[in-house]
């Protein structure tokens, strides 16, 4: 994460004041930015054998993780672990109808067509989740130190892509043989968060 990285602040996040307290330095945000990074291995042999839905949890008035990547045909499941009702609705488009999810409830939605789908809670407007639906491949989680790992990949030629701040920021072709392959992805500074 480059220093000074700050995504564009939409109007709904603008404030009159945002000041340091003058006593202690500003701490790191509780929400780890790495949870918003998706690393995707694209290739015919890299298909995700798991057909289980990808969970997106609503807790502490936020989606965790805020971004998930799934193959076309898989589902995303929204789990409400908050004490308040969340009303899910698409940010744009009509890929799903508005749906209320009470505390402790879940809802599931299958995505058959590749694309980028954004869901938000109309009651807590800052809550927004992104579902990346890809034709084939598998995703890897990013650890706290920023590393990621794909295991059991058959030999072949693949493409490693990294999604962050609303766009695919990194893409590299790799050939997998009998030895481990190391890919280093550097994310450039995002000038603007794409809505």
């Amino acid at each position: 994460m480059p220093a000074g990285f700050e995504p564009h602040t939409p109007f709904t996040e603008r404030t009159y004041w945002s000041l340091p307290n003058g006593l202690l330095p500003t701490a790191a945000p509780l929400t780890d930015w790495r949870r918003s990074v998706v690393v995707w291995l694209d290739g015919p042999s890299a298909r995700d054998r798991s057909r289980a839905p990808a969970d997106i949890t609503m807790a502490d008035a936020r989606f965790v993780p805020p971004v998930v990547a799934i193959e076309a045909g898989r589902s995303a499941r929204f789990v409400n672990r908050d004490s308040v009702l969340h009303l899910l609705e698409p940010v744009s488009g009509k890929f799903m109808a508005a749906e209320s999810v009470g505390p402790g409830d879940t809802t599931e939605r299958q995505f058959d067509r590749p694309g980028t789908y954004r869901v938000r809670c109309s009651e807590v407007p800052h809550m927004e989740a992104t579902i990346l639906v890809l034709q084939q491949g598998q995703a890897a989680e990013v650890s706290a130190d920023g590393s990621f790992q794909f295991n059991g990949v058959p030999p072949g030629i693949y493409t490693v892509q990294v999604w962050y701040a609303g766009e695919w920021m990194f893409k590299q072709s790799v050939e997998v043989g009998g030895k481990p392959v190391v890919v280093e992805a550097r994310l450039r500074k995002a000038q603007q968060r794409k809505e």
Binding site: W17, S18, P25, T26, A27, P29, L30, A59, D60, A61
Partner: peptide, 16 residues
């Protein structure tokens, strides 16, 4: 904590 206001305050910011 998901509220930007709360998150900012927990980071030590004075915010509205």
């Amino acid at each position: 904590a998901g509220y930007p206001l709360v998150e900012a305050a927990l980071r030590g910011l004075l915010r509205d």
